[in-house]
Design a protein around this nucleic acid. Structure first.
Length: 815
RNA sequence: GCCCGGGUGGCGAAAUCGGCAGACGCAACGGACUUAAAAUCCGUUUUCCGGCAACGGGAGUGUGGGUUCAAGUCCCACCCCGGGCACCA
């Protein structure tokens, strides 16, 4: 009896497959159905961990299944050059980040091949390649032309000790990650932004219209909260010193209760105000908030000494500055209605500002100020609100907004929480932003035929100053493309989320050097049928890539409005309760596991241990079970395949049992693939099949054995491709097993000979009866009542009702 | 605070449409084979009560109520765990 030797089998097929570049290559054939599956690309830390293996095992099983269902499947692989970690890790090792990344990508590619993942390597590319930079830059220029890219001053985290800009994730407890006692400051620098807010409405609406059903509700909710639409009005309060200040509110109906106006500390009006100590207090508020200190949850304010005029009541109200008012939301200024907004209530209470209720509950009185302990935030009926008194809130809002529009001091407005996407990074790593600053012409785009602007080699990364590129004169100094005068290249590089926003389009046409991709080719594959990745990207990546898709659609490059029809978020693989990560030192190296147990066992295990959307704790002790299962399969198929006896037209009871279980298993596994991807139950079903086959194998004849062994092998192919391929060959077949047709099942053959029907008395199981399928309700009732055990529970009682679910259950209700 | 998930044996889990709770596997224990071990195969394993036993009976899916002939599954309230957002006017 041959023993299962995973080293030998996996090496054999690995060697054959690696010499066949077309093995997994897919070109869409006319008239055939297509399936495009993409896993989120990995960050090249140099090693896969079990989390990756799980991610790709899911997508790979799906791709192989779809192939077997006769689809043309595109299952490509690309590589993400995730900026900050790559640069930091390279720095630590004193390496050039580009070389470091490319080396790691090569290592990871070998690991992926060894795991037997079915990727179309012809379409491989890395987002740190100059060719990819070129198209990032091309997109940037197109967006600049369309007014979707712009430059403005923004506050950045700055560590005075390092003298450098910090990314948000480098700020730890309000301090620099390298200098843990140096508080981070805010510095105003010019930054590039993409106008994602132009698409905020569509991005939000499509979470209902185009994504509902195909994306996890959890992700859609997170995106909706992130985009955060609120509808209200913008209103101008007159300034006593002249001019106006614009506030945003969702509750115009409460404006008669506004007892002050509060500005964000960063509000431009603050510049011109001169109350004593005001500048210092404002600066302190800004820095404190940047550091996200816990004390920021305590409200703090400063009176500016100035007053504004309520446009409805003409009342004069003081202007304050408040640390809880955000410059980035609405207009950066609010009217405070302490009686009807909890935050305003707390603020005004603290500073002794008047609290004035103007809304009463529909069936109640105006709140009594002396007894109020919190604001009344619900809708109600307006009172003491001039000509709008006595109206329900909703109506008052509408009429008062109209009044503002007619009188030119305001308008209905929709505000979003989402902000424009700041793509500038002051780092070496990333796509250079392709503009030139000319002394005479200002900002000049790099002409398209001069793309790509590439990163210079031999850059010294000192960790000081703004960008390492500023210290490279050959890169920095350039002639203005417009006037030929002295110019200075932009040294900001792009956020690497730009790369990941459209990489899956490049797969369709990875070698195109005339365009990012061909329109027709993208049209063949998009939208992605199935996108698979971790929930960690629910917000940033998955909103940016949706935005990018909509921009490309408006540019006429594609027709789809959303990148992916279906999104699947797989759970994390945990070790000791937390996500595996190198820094925590709790990674499990798949290479060790593959050496020890084999790639098939590893893949089977990560799919079997838990349903794929759930987090799972890594437990090596459980891996042995999967290994044993594969050994059992191997022995069963290779052992049984040799021995053929009996006649095909003379099936034994064992043949019938084997075939019945086979058809049940095909039905189960097919259903799991088509409906819910609970591969743990698919694999459990395969185990049941194998257990049953061990019981009946000695009685099986040619009537069942060939089809049973073939189909078992085919069912195994999406989960354990090496094993399946080896068995496929040993069973006398040729060609890749995953191109063979998926087995079909017959409901009739899957049926048990008789139904085992539980009989309950008052809902409690008392007996089981066996009856042929399709037995009538009346007959089942008679059989159930005739059962001795049932009779002992029914005796002496009155049968009130008998519920019969044919082929399923009998329940006798007695009193 | 708000919004999502989730809570089932010693462990990972299953029960897909309201119909036999614990499939499948891990671990543990017992047995067969073996000089022995490994491997393999067979069996037991939610819990309590009664019984030498076959078996019989009760309880049981975070807690408390409810709907129903029937609830892990539906409804109401609460507790706990995980995640996201967090002064968004």
């Amino acid at each position: 009896m041959p023993e299962y030797d995973h080293q030998e089998i996996e090496l054999k097929w690995h060697d054959r497959w690696k010499n066949d570049p077309d093995l997994y290559a897919s070109d869409a054939q006319p008239g055939r159905q297509r399936y495009y599956v993409v896993e989120m690309l990995p960050y090249p830390s140099g090693h896969l961990h079990m989390g990756h293996v799980r991610n790709y095992s899911i997508g790979d099983a799906l791709a192989r299944y779809m192939w077997m269902r006769g689809y043309d499947v595109l299952h490509p692989m690309g590589w993400d050059a995730f900026g900050l970690p790559a640069e930091n890790a390279a720095l630590k090792r004193g390496r050039d980040p580009r070389e470091w990344t490319i080396e790691n990508i090569a290592v990871m590619k070998q690991q992926m091949i060894r795991m037997g993942f079915a990727y179309d390597w012809k379409r491989e590319f890395a987002t740190c390649e100059p060719e990819y930079y070129r198209w990032n830059q091309w997109f940037f220029l197109k967006m600049l032309e369309r007014g979707l890219a712009y430059r403005k001053q923004a506050l950045l985290n700055w560590c005075p000790e390092c003298g450098t800009v910090l990314a948000n994730e480098q700020v730890v407890n309000g301090c620099c990650w390298r200098h843990e006692t140096t508080p981070v400051e805010q510095r105003a620098l010019d930054q590039w932004f993409l106008k994602i807010t132009d698409y905020a409405g569509e991005l939000l609406d499509d979470t209902y219209e185009r994504l509902e059903g195909g994306w996890p509700e959890r992700v859609l909710t997170m995106q909706r909260n992130w985009i955060g639409r609120s509808e209200g009005a913008e209103l101008d309060f007159g300034l006593e010193r002249g001019g106006t200040v614009r506030v945003f509110t969702t509750r115009v109906d409460t404006i008669y209760g506004a007892t002050c106006v509060i500005l964000a500390p960063e509000h431009p009006l603050v510049e011109g105000m001169h109350a004593p100590d005001l500048k210092e207090r404002v600066k302190a508020m800004i820095d404190s908030r940047a550091r996200k200190e816990p004390s920021d949850l305590v409200k703090e304010g400063a009176f500016t000494g100035e007053y504004a005029i309520n446009p409805y009541s003409r009342e004069r109200v003081p202007i304050w500055i408040g640390n809880f008012v955000l410059m980035s939301y609405g207009t950066g200024a609010i009217m405070a209605v302490p009686a009807h907004d909890q935050r305003d209530f707390e603020f005004c209470k603290q500073y002794g500002i008047e609290i004035r209720p103007v809304i009463r509950p529909v069936d109640g009185e105006l709140p009594d100020v002396s007894k109020m302990s919190e604001a009344y935030g619900d809708y109600g009926i307006t009172e003491n609100t001039g000509q709008w008194s006595g109206l329900p809130s909703a109506l008052a809002k509408r009429e008062m907004t109209e009044f503002a529009e007619q009188n030119g001091f305001g308008k209905a407005a929709t505000t979003y929480r989402i902000k424009d996407w700041g793509i500038s990074r002051q780092r070496y790593w990333g796509t250079p932003i392709p503009v030139i600053h000319c002394e005479a012409c200002g900002i000049v785009p790099v002409p398209e035929n001069q793309l790509p602007v590439v990163l210079p080699a031999n850059v010294k990364i000192t960790g000081k100053g703004r960008s390492p590129l500023e210290n490279v004169p050959e890169f920095l100094n350039v002639d203005c493309p417009k006037c030929g005068g002295k110019g200075r290249r932009e040294t900001d590089t792009m956020d690497t989320f730009v790369d990941s926003s459209w990489y899956f389009y490049r797969y369709c046409d990875a070698r195109n050097d005339a365009a990012p991709f061909d329109r027709a080719k993208a049209g063949q594959w998009f939208p992605i049928d199935q996108y698979i990745g971790g929930v960690t990207h629910a917000i940033l990546h998955l909103i940016y890539s949706r935005f990018w898709t909509k921009v490309m659609r408006d540019m006429g490059l594609i027709e789809n409005s959303e990148p992916a029809r279906n999104l699947f978020t797989q759970g994390m693989v945990l070790k000791d309760g937390t996500a595996m990560s190198k820094s925590k030192g709790n990674v499990v190296d798949p290479e060790d596991m593959v050496d020890k147990y084999g790639a098939d066992t590893c893949r089977l295990f990560v799919l079997f241990a838990a349903p794929p959307e759930k987090d799972m704790e890594w437990q090596e002790s459980a891996v042995g079970g999967q290994r044993r299962f594969l050994e059992r399969v191997y022995r069963l198929v290779t052992g049984a395949a040799e021995r053929v006896h009996g006649e095909a037209d003379n099936p034994t009871p064992e043949d019938r049992r084997a075939l019945r279980k086979l058809h049940q298993t095909v039905r189960k596994v097919t259903g799991d693939f088509d409906n819910r991807w609970h591969f743990n139950t698919s694999i459990a079903a395969l185990m049941e099949l194998v257990n049953e086959l061990y019981e009946v194998k000695d009685g099986m004849t040619a009537a069942s054995r060939p089809v049973v062994l073939d189909d078992l092998t085919l069912l195994l192919a999406p989960f354990a491709p090496y094993m399946a391929q080896e068995l496929w060959e040993q069973l006398g077949h040729e060609g890749p097993v995953f191109r063979h047709q998926w087995p079909t099942f017959d409901e009739e053959l899957a049926k048990e000979e008789a139904a085992e029907i539980p009989v309950q008395v008052n809902g409690k199981l008392r007996a089981r009866i066996s009856a042929p399928f399709g037995t009538t309700a009346a007959e089942l009732e008679r059989l159930a009542l005739a059962e001795p055990k049932v009779q002992s529970f029914v005796a002496g009682k009155q049968v009130v009702k008998v519920i019969v679910v044919p082929d399923k259950l009998v329940n006798i209700v007695v009193k």
